[in-house]
């Protein structure tokens, strides 16, 4: 036994100090370079002419219209996709039916199609050159270069987020609790509201936050269908680009800073909810 006695006790679950320092250093450097530095740059550039510059930039009618547009789009698209995502995930995770594999693949489609292509498809489908577009025009319904088109494009690109978050969680949880509720006499809608949804609410929240971030930040698809009409269809990301191209650096970065703040706010909200419901969170996760 004495021949294997270590000179110094080494904890079996940790790496040597050098390796640890290297890994931690690498992670910190990466976070600093790719996450922190850009964020700081955005705020620094926005504040290049001081707080007044930011206020002036955000008071520009074009900037305010873009902020209103982006918030409107998110307010419409995110709830719609939450509902769709819940329905799709529920169907896929809790029922067996023909064509399930096809549905799963279709949900992922927006991940693999370039947003610009998605935008172009909408323009081709609803634009003035198509039969549908001509009919819509004749009836004075505007889709392309208007809010409905932008909402459609946003719905398309944010399609997978909620469903993708929910499906694995729902599959992992299986049907046992729903079946238990059935034997206890609960009707289907009640089971959905009191068992299925509460059990998946963290995944749902996460999916909604991701979907919201993407809805507010989407550039490519929206740039194509919106036509980027200033003060009318331009969203925050497309307006940032236009300001930047016009060398209105403070305006561009001020708007970009608002976008970044909105993103930080959603993250803060999520952390707050997780912190307030820590006990429930622990209870609903299986170990």
């Amino acid at each position: 036994m004495s021949d294997i006695a270590p000179t110094r006790p080494v904890p079996v679950t940790t790496e040597p100090p050098l390796v640890r320092a290297l890994l931690i250093g690498l992670a910190v450097a990466f976070v600093a370079l790719f996450l922190f530095a850009p964020l700081v740059t955005v705020f620094a550039e926005a504040l290049a002419e001081g707080g007044r510059g930011v206020i002036a930039a955000l008071s520009l009618p074009d900037a305010r219209a873009a902020i209103a547009m982006t918030l409107t789009i998110a307010a419409i698209a995110v709830p719609l996709n939450a509902v769709f995502g819940i329905a799709a995930a529920w169907a896929i995770a809790k029922f067996d039916f023909r064509g399930k594999a096809v549905l799963i693949t279709l949900i992922d489609l927006p991940f693999s199609v370039s947003p610009v292509v998605a935008g172009l498809t909408l323009v081709l489908l609803f634009g003035a050159n198509s039969a549908l577009g001509a009919w819509l025009m004749a009836n004075d319904i505007r889709i392309v270069f208007a809010l409905p088109g932008i909402v459609l494009a946003t719905l398309f690109v944010t399609f997978p987020f909620v469903a993708r978050e929910l499906i694995p969680v729902m599959i992992e949880q299986g049907r046992a609790e729903e079946e238990a509720a059935l034997t206890l006499g609960a009707p289907g809608w009640r089971i959905f509201l009191t068992v299925t949804l509460p059990n998946t609410r963290w995944a749902l929240l996460y999916g909604v936050l991701l979907s919201n971030a993407r809805a507010m930040g989407e550039f490519g698809a929206v740039a194509v269908v919106s036509g980027k009409i200033r003060g009318e269809t331009a969203t925050m990301p497309t307006m940032v680009e236009m300001f930047y191209n016009e060398y209105l650096s403070v305006a561009a970065f001020s708007l970009a800073a608002v976008l970044a703040l909105l993103a930080l706010l959603t993250l803060l909200l999520k952390s707050l909810l997780e912190w307030r419901h820590a006990d429930l969170l622990a209870a609903t996760r299986r170990h």
Binding site: A176, A180, A181, T183, G185, L280, T284
Partner: peptide, 19 residues
């Protein structure tokens, strides 16, 4: 239907509502 049968069922893994 399941609901109308009023059968008290104890599942193998208990299936308690975890939340």
């Amino acid at each position: 239907s399941v609901q109308d049968r009023r059968a008290g069922f104890v599942f193998q893994s208990y299936a308690l509502f975890r939340h």
